[in-house]
Amino acid sequence: MPNITVQTSRILLVEDDHDDAALAQRAFHKANVWNPLDVVRSGQEAWDYLTHQGAFADAEKFPAPLFVLVDLNLPGMDGRELISRIQADSGLRRIPLLVVSTSDYEKDIEFGRKLGVQHYVIKPLQPQNILAFIGALPGFQIILGTAK
């Protein structure tokens, strides 16, 4: 048997809260999505990840993620600023974004809409949110596990 290495698409979660990250991880598994989930804890870290800087300099190990889940309230550079930066970058702009927020505050939702973020989910992230989001993305390769 020849050795075949498949480069697996990764998913980036920007979430400073451990518990919420754990809930998100579980929701992905419940939705049978088994792509590796990288969790970063701040907007700055996410920006480093996306632009291959610092701890994420290895572009091969950290290729552009399949999509990014962003919590709006983050320490330092918050989710709003991160999204603004991503949307202002011609390369990164193509990466689909899903805003995950505690808040159903209209202003936050409106903010995302203005920046062209189509997908907004109120926490806790549910498996069906993930499936709906993925279903809305054009032609992405998702690793689906065997349904339980």
Binding site: D19, D20, L23, N73, T102, S103, D104, K123, P124
Partner: peptide
């Protein structure tokens, strides 16, 4: 809406 709901959501979720 944010800070009061966040811990509550966790209690509920967990």
């Amino acid at each position: 809406s944010h800070d009061l709901q966040a811990p509550l959501q966790k209690i509920e979720s967990f």
